[in-house]
Every structure is written in structure tokens, then in C-alpha cells.
Design a protein around this nucleic acid. Structure first.
Lengths: 413, 413
DNA sequence: CACTATTTTTTCGAGGCTCGAAAAAAAGAG
DNA sequence: CTCTTTTTTTCGAGCCTCGAAAAAATAGTG
């Protein structure tokens, strides 16, 4: 059962609250923080001066555009960029990229390179990550704070503790212990997270009004991924990263999926499935290993131009997604949707069929709550999500705890 | 955003913790409570003596079987039955039942009667509830504490605030404001909750070892209902009671469902669907309004006796449930299952097909985590669930708050 | 039966935390 | 230059939890 609240947890939580308020709002004053957190002015004053003394926050200077009011002007608080830094890594099919980011979210250094992930041994994937991170850290500006956390966004299924990559389409190997290996190497907490979950996290920060408590991010690419936020929290499985929308069953014993099973949504709506339906007309044909973005845009152009197998393939894809969403909506009610990735550029071809399929399901009941949005470029989203994930961990788990529990002793300073 | 923690919240939470520990364990001592909550002995001592003084807890006497130890014997703490009472109501198709229950969970008075719910106006449903509760309260033993909460378990979809019955198979009417009407009548907080959610809540208390953080209760009756506990919390929709498993889509544009749509799981696995497949062999036939339990057991007996349409109907039902579960497991990983209701007596006929369908889905990966359990009688579970729901509200929201916020003033005692 | 060992529960003072009120600080308005 | 307004800090009061010590209550032991 959940444990009782100790006296020191109180401070910890309220510190976390203040840090979170500063990260969320752009440079709020103490008064604004008091308003959003519901804590008293005196408490905010005490906590924020502690945080400033510890080098976590700083008073933002050289900026008063919206002043022009009577009374003592508000002092804006900001995150101190040099308080820490984190590393955000994105590992996708045939591509690895990483960035060192300061505590305020500014990118200090970044790098990207192509790999043939599907042919590499598991250990090589890990060591490529390590090597890239090592280069970035060594080369980074020394003014940045110490690296306190590393987050890796990766296509595939991770365990619920975000420590291992259980399965991924980018490699033949299972159970790759990324977190353990990188922690051993860098001596810093590491998490491996599902890329679509990171996309959802990023959307929340990009557009907090639209994507707040309940929304769904769907990645339309070679496969179909999903990041799900329900009641303000990222929804994960009990044992894995979960939300494997692409492998919900659309038609029992239906089309052959890349995962070896039959009838998965992905087997109708993944890029390989659309291509297969359009070009081969055989939904049992062995899925292709990879497809270029151009292949998909070519199919979409053909489908827009004239009726034919291409248009029909996109219809089937939209239908599979729509019925799948309808089934999900039966479980937790409809929510706003964001379609991300190359496939999103062809979403105009699928949208009517998605809608008409949803209308045939229980989700059609409250379909007002559904809105669509598309974002073709998933890579920056994955990186932003991993970044936010890492920064929030630093906020909530390291800096909120206070100086006593972070360092052995502050006496001999 | 979530609000900061005030100083008095701390006491409130720790009081809640202690009450919860006493309700969970059977008559724990102060030492045991300290161990399970992680709070210090002195804190537990202070809080528990407050609670005893307020008449919420009591020292349990006349019981020391497991003593025989050296040292000062432990004093068992128990809930004081007269601290409060609650009313648990179960409203199902053609049946209404209610019970007055004391704070320790003992039934003080109960009543059940048959109604023709489908032909009654919405207002009549409400007033029948009111009348039955009024009779029970007036007739109840005066030694019971005041009624502090009423919980209604009802078949159908409620809003996420548990105030209205949005839709239900037991009536033609929508949006029945049970909570508002009953609160107005009795001046006590009221909630209306989905019956399957209450079944899940009850299972958790009946067998906390098996049904703890993650499990699924499926009600197999005329329709198919589900109560879902994920990560220790009842899973509800964002706008409704959610978890409408029966209306996830099994086969797009498939069999005609009672809800008017096509291909829902219920249209294959609900009692009416099994009967229709077995007797009419036409999955598009208009669903029957009601079926007796005997009709279903007769079908099951026939299916066990010889191959034929009955057996095939149960196969289809099992398959629909299995594929549906597989799709759900893609979202949040497999969990233990409890099948409840008349249909559970025929579960032996479905189980192999459920399993083989799950094996064809992503859920088949970790199928070790799946276990089945059946419980034919759903009525007591619904009542227990509603009871626990109401009692927990009293625990957490009324008694945890302390006497100051409950009464105007304790000065002139 | 008195005494000891042992375990549970209560008491008490110390240390933290938040809060409200009042004071201090820092501007614009007149 | 003084007054008004708003923000921020300071200070004492009131709670809360904790650890240590004391008190309470019982089973063993000779």
C-alpha cells in the first residue's frame, strides 16, 4: 500500500511544485507561483530563495516588457541553465541521434548518424550509443552543469521500469539492457522509453492547451505506434511500455502482420501494408523490411490523382485505424488525436474512412471530443519528449529532494 | 495543475492512512499500523487516540488468540460500527435492492424487489429507489450511526463524476440524475456507479492477494460488462464510467448488437447472442429483450452433451472475448481475469477458444500473467462493491478530514 | 510470589514546515 | 517629494512528525 507522508516529504513536494511551476510557465514571478500552486507567499518566498541559493533557479534579468504597472515590479524566476544538463538520445531504424541539453532546455551539442541497426549485434547498438554520448559530453561547453540523466527514445517495447528494450523492429535482438549498460558507463540514471510515449510527452509541452489531460499521439510510419495520455498521465502497460495500438486486432485471422500474427491494425495501416495492398493486392504477402518516405508519398499522390488500388489501400488503412480507435474509445472515451510521421502527410486520404469507421463504434457517441491534427516530422518530437522526460526527472527526483540528500556534506564548502 | 500540499493536508492524509490500514487489515495493533504505513509509533499513537476519541475507531476487546508472546500484549484496533452507516443500492434489469450497512461493514437491514424497469418512466426509477431507502432507514436499528453516503451500482454507463446514469439497458431513458435527486432527498452525498466497476472493487476486498494492482472483472450476462483495475486504480473513462469491453469491435460490420451497431463483442458473447447463434443461426436477427438464466444453462448443457449449433455458439463467444482481450492486452499487458455472472457457469465451453484467440494476439506474449477465475453470482459482488465504495468515501473524505471540518464547532460539547 | 526480560504504547521535547500579519522594498502617480 | 500600490521578505505562532525515554503490561524464572 502507499506509504504515509513523512514530514520531510512535504518540503520535497512543495519544492517540486515550485520547480514545476517555473518550468511550465515562462518566467513566472513569485506571486504567480503562489497563485498556481495554492501555497502562501511566504512559503514560495522561502522555497524560491533556497532554490536560488542552490543554483537551481535564477532571477531573470533584462526583461520587463509587461511592466507599466504601479507597485513593486515582479521579479521573474527562471531555470538556471547551468544547474545541470541531460542527454536525450533517439534511436530509430537505421538512425541514431543524441543531444546534450542544459537545464533550461537549450541544446548544447548534438549529433546524428546512420547505422544499419537491423544487422548489428545488440552490444554494438549499445556501444554506438555510448560512443556518441561520450563524444558529445567530452566536446560540450564546460559551462554546462553536470549530466544528471540520460533518456533514450526508441522504437519498440520497453519494460515498465524503462530499463530494457524488450522488443524492437529495428533489431533482431531482444531484452537489450540499455539502462544498465549506460548507467555503468556514465554513472548517471538512464531510462529507455518508447518513442511514441516521448512524442506524446513532447506534444504536451508544445501545445499544453490542446494536449493536456487526455490525448492520443499516433505515429504512422512503417509500423503504427501510439502514445497515450489519460487523465494527465502517460498511459503505460503494467509490464511494458504498452499502448501497442498497432497490434490490436482489426480483423481476426486477417492480413499478415510484420509481427507474424494476423489481422493487426498495423497489417492494414502500416506503410508496408498500404504499399502491399496498393502494389501487390495480396494482404498475405511477406511484409517489406523497409520503405522510403518517397514510396509512400508516391502512393498518396497516385491515390489523390485517380481511383484505383492505391486509393483503396488508404481506405483500408483509414478503416483499420478508425475501428481500432473506436474500440479504444469504448474503453476510455474519445480524446483529441495527433497523427505524426510520414503517414500523416497522407492522412487526408484516410480521414473520411477513419471517421466513418469511428461512427460505427461506441466511440461515435461523443465524437465531438475527437479532433485531428497532423505533424509530419516525428524526429524532433521524439527528441523533445526524451528531453522533457529527463529534465522532469531531474526536477522531481533530484532537485526537489534538497541539497542534503544530494551531496554527502555541504559543510566543507 | 495539482495543487501544493498544505500543512493540514499532511494530518489529513496520515489519518486516512491509519483508517485505511484498519479497514484493510483485520484488527491491527498500533505497532502493525506503524509498520504498514511507515509512520512512526508516536504518530500512530497520536492519530489513533484522536480517532478513538472521535468515535471512529475502537479498541477491540475479547480477543487474543495469537497472544502467547512475552511483553505487553498488542491492542487490536477496529472500526467502530456505530461511527456511521451507508446505503448500498443495486439496480439491475427488473430488480432493485438496497441495504443499510454500518461503518464496520455489517448489514443492518436490506430489501429487494422486482420492478419492470424497462417500462417505467425515469422518474419512477428514481422514486422507487428513494422509497426503498426511506423505508430501510426509518426501519433500521437506531443504534447505527448516521447515514453519511449512498452508493448505487447500476448496469449501464454513468458519467465520470458518478452523478448521472447516461445510458442503461435497463431503461429507455437517458441521463437520469440519480445523484442529484437522491442528495436532494436525503441530504447526503450520493454516487451512481457502473455495476462492473463495483464488482471489481468487491473482488479486490474479497481476495486482495489475487486481485490487487491489476485485474479484470468481466460480467457475462445478457450483455458483457467489464470492471478494470490498472495500477491499483479503478480504470474509468474520461467522460464516462468507461471500460465498455462489450462494445469494442470484434468484427467490423459483423453481427447485430443490442446497441444497434455491428460487430461488437457483445453481439457474439452476450447471452442473447449465444442464444441467437445457437437457436436461430442468424447473427443479424433482432436481439431478444431478456433471457432467463435457465435458457443459458440449457444451451450450455446441450453444448456439453453433443456437437452442434450450441457448441458452435459458445465457440464464437469465446473467440470474441479472446480477441477482445488480446486487443486490450496490447494496450496494457495481460492481467488476471475473473468471469462473473450466469455466463461464467458456461465458461468451460468458452475457455479453450478464449485462450486460442488470445494466443493469436500480442497479448499471447506474456500469457503467463493470465489466470482465470469464475464466480456465477454477481449480485452480492455488486452490493459489496457499492458498500466498499461508500465506506471508503466516508473513510477518506469525511473521517480523514478531522472533526473541525465536519462540525460547526466542538466547543460547547 | 517477586523479579526480570520483553514488547507495546504513551509521553515529551526538538526540529521542521506552512501560514498570516506586518514590515520592507520598489516602483508609478500626482 | 510624498502618496499609493504591488511585490517580496521577515517574524512569530501553531501544527505535525520524529526519536528517545518512560510507562505499561505480560510471560518466563527461580
Amino acid at each position: 500500500m502507499s506509504v504515509g507522508i513523512r514530514h520531510d516529504d512535504l518540503r520535497r513536494r512543495n519544492r517540486a511544485m515550485v520547480i514545476s511551476a517555473v518550468r511550465r510557465a515562462s518566467q513566472p514571478s513569485r506571486t504567480e507561483i503562489a497563485a498556481t500552486t495554492g501555497l502562501s507567499h511566504s512559503t514560495i518566498s522561502t522555497i524560491s530563495s533556497d532554490l536560488i541559493a542552490e543554483g537551481i533557479l535564477a532571477e531573470a534579468k533584462g526583461f520587463e516588457p509587461a511592466a507599466m504597472k504601479r507597485g513593486r515590479p515582479q521579479v521573474a524566476l527562471a531555470l538556471e541553465p547551468r544547474a545541470a544538463s541531460i542527454v536525450a538520445v533517439v534511436l530509430s531504424l537505421n538512425s541514431l541521434s543524441a543531444a546534450v541539453i542544459d537545464y533550461a532546455g537549450n541544446t548544447m551539442a548534438e549529433d546524428t548518424r546512420r547505422l544499419v541497426t537491423q544487422r548489428m549485434p545488440a552490444e554494438a547498438l549499445v556501444s554506438e550509443c555510448i560512443a556518441m554520448i561520450r563524444r558529445l559530453i567530452d566536446g560540450a561547453d564546460t559551462s554546462a552543469g553536470p549530466v544528471l540523466r540520460i533518456a533514450i527514445a526508441v522504437q519498440g517495447i520497453t519494460d515498465s521500469g524503462s530499463r530494457k528494450l524488450l522488443w524492437s523492429p529495428i533489431t533482431r535482438h531482444d531484452d537489450i539492457p540499455f539502462a544498465d549498460r549506460l548507467e555503468q558507463e556514465f554513472g548517471v540514471p538512464v531510462t529507455v522509453e518508447n518513442d511514441c510515449n516521448m512524442i506524446a510527452e513532447a506534444l504536451r509541452w508544445r501545445d499544453p492547451l490542446r494536449y493536456r489531460d487526455d490525448f492520443i499521439a499516433i505515429l504512422l510510419s512503417h509500423g503504427i505506434g501510439m502514445g497515450l495520455v489519460i487523465k494527465g498521465e502517460l498511459f503505460t502497460g503494467t509490464q511494458s511500455s504498452g499502448a501497442e495500438f498497432g497490434h490490436m486486432i482489426h480483423r481476426p485471422d486477417g492480413a499478415l502482420c510484420r509481427c507474424g500474427r494476423r489481422g493487426c491494425i498495423e497489417a492494414y495501416a502500416g506503410n508496408y501494408a498500404i504499399w502491399r495492398n496498393a502494389r501487390l493486392g495480396d494482404e498475405n504477402a511477406e511484409p517489406l523490411a523497409d520503405l522510403s518516405d518517397d514510396d509512400i508519398t508516391a502512393l498518396a499522390d497516385a491515390a489523390r490523382d485517380h481511383d484505383g488500388p492505391e486509393r483503396e489501400a488508404f481506405r483500408k488503412a483509414g478503416e483499420a485505424i478508425g475501428f481500432g480507435l473506436g474500440s479504444m474509445f469504448a474503453l476510455f472515451d474519445p480524446a483529441p488525436l495527433a497523427f505524426v510521421g510520414v503517414g500523416a502527410t497522407a492522412f487526408d486520404l484516410m480521414e473520411p474512412h477513419v471517421l466513418s469507421a469511428i461512427a460505427k463504434t461506441a466511440g461515435g457517441l461523443h465524437s465531438k471530443a475527437i479532433s485531428f491534427d497532423t505533424e509530419p516530422n516525428e524526429v524532433p518530437l521524439k527528441r523533445e519528449g526524451a528531453m522533457m522526460r529527463a529534465l522532469l526527472h531531474v526536477d522531481q527526483e533530484i532537485f526537489a529532494a534538497g541539497p542534503a540528500s544530494r551531496q554527502p556534506a555541504t559543510d566543507v564548502a
